[in-house]
């Protein structure tokens, strides 16, 4: 199995855990995926959403900001971050 496939497995597992509200596990999987592909904006975004739904707001904010550094046009990350800053 090549490293791209391995990353994809972590992403798929992360999404599965996320939809099952198992946010801690989802966070672990997305972090694992990022350890092999640290500037992957999509995975960072999934990590940020998982932090936010897990009430880890400071970490979520940081992760959304990282997504926007890599991909300034990421509208979803921008709108989530703005919503968080309003509170």
């Amino acid at each position: 199995m090549n490293s791209k496939d391995k990353i994809q497995i972590h992403i798929d597992k992360g999404k599965f855990y996320f939809s099952s509200k198992k946010y801690e596990e989802a966070i672990k999987e997305f972090k694992n995926a990022l350890s092999n592909d640290k500037d992957n904006a999509e995975v960072l975004y999934s990590l940020a959403v998982s932090y936010e739904t897990n009430s880890d707001y400071d970490l979520a904010k940081e992760a959304y900001q990282k997504v926007l550094l890599i991909e300034p046009e990421h509208e979803l990350a921008r709108s989530h971050l703005e919503k968080m800053l309003e509170k």
Binding site: G14, K15, F18, S19, K21, A26, E42, Y45, S46, V49, S50, E52, T53, L76
Partner: peptide, 14 residues
């Protein structure tokens, strides 16, 4: 309450 979803673009969201 935030309900997790995977949207039509396979993105995690709520």
């Amino acid at each position: 309450r935030k309900n997790p979803i995977i949207d039509e673009n396979e993105q995690t969201d709520y």
